[in-house]
């Protein structure tokens, strides 16, 4: 049933730290790898080694430049995947019931054998989190690695989404955002985690942590003098060099 559950027991999701992400795309690669080899249809590529390669990804890393009014520009790497919204518009539009939000943990999933590939859920998602696979013609999306996080065949430290496990910078955190005492909820509270496009009223579970503000050059200490010419009145060898070069 594509009606949304009124509440979920847990709200499993990701917290992504924009201050720490270095934009290495390791999460993109590990996501593609895990989700091609495991649950559901593989994430296909078309023309992978040709002129116009194209492929399905569940996680992509954008980079944005932010130009504050009175300080240097900042480059911010911005990983984006399904936010497992509480009011997921992708679920309610689905005509077949293939899209659903799980009551037990809040994960939004697609039952691929019910998906007719109409694409309406991707139209309804403001975040570009859903992609129709070019080969299987079914909708693919982040599963929060549902086949890892409960998988008792894996060592305990591996029972987190592949992107979280692989991130070399520790910029991705996984946990229950419905529990105010969980590590991820505390992180969101401490760092002022925010929603993407809050005006869409999708109530995303995933949160983003803002980049910390950069240091400013201090005009009191005149730190900018390091960039200015150093030898106004040269002495000794430099005075001789200066005079000689003037004569040439």
């Amino acid at each position: 049933m594509t009606c949304l559950p009124s509440s979920t027991d847990k709200k499993l999701g990701l917290v992504i730290d924009l201050d720490t992400c270095v934009g290495c795309h390791a999460c993109v690669v590990s996501c593609k790898g895990w989700n091609t080899e495991n649950y559901g249809a593989p994430l296909a590529d078309q023309d992978a080694y040709g002129e116009n390669p194209l492929g399905t990804f569940l996680n992509r890393v954008h980079s944005y430049e932010v130009q504050p009014e009175d300080s240097p520009a900042q480059l911010i790497h911005f990983p984006k995947s399904c936010l497992h919204c509480d009011d997921a518009p992708c679920v309610t539009v689905c005509p077949t019931g293939a899209s659903y939000k799980r009551t037990e943990d809040g994960i939004v999933l697609v039952n691929e054998t019910d998906c007719i590939g109409c694409g309406l859920c991707a139209w309804a998602c403001p975040y570009g989190a859903r992609e129709l696979d070019g080969e299987e013609k079914v909708m693919k999306k982040c599963t929060l690695c549902v086949d890892r996080i409960y998988n008792e065949n894996l060592p305990e430290e591996d029972r987190v989404p592949a992107c979280v496990r692989t991130c070399p910078a520790g910029a991705r955190h996984f946990g229950d955002l419905g529990d105010p005492d969980s590590d991820v909820s505390k992180l969101v509270a401490d760092r002022g985690g925010f929603d993407l496009m809050p005006e869409m009223n999708t109530k995303p579970v995933n949160k983003y942590l803002p980049p910390r503000l950069k240091d400013q050059l201090d005009p009191e200490r005149n730190e900018t003098h390091a960039l200015e010419a150093q030898a106004e009145n040269p002495q000794g060898f430099f005075a001789w060099l200066d005079r000689t070069l003037e004569k040439l």
Partner: peptide
């Protein structure tokens, strides 16, 4: 969500090709 700190510009897309 970065608009409160300055003007935001898309600097680099996630990939060089196109996508779905």
């Amino acid at each position: 969500g970065l608009g409160d700190r300055g003007s935001v510009r898309a600097f680099e897309p996630p990939h060089t090709g196109t996508n779905y």
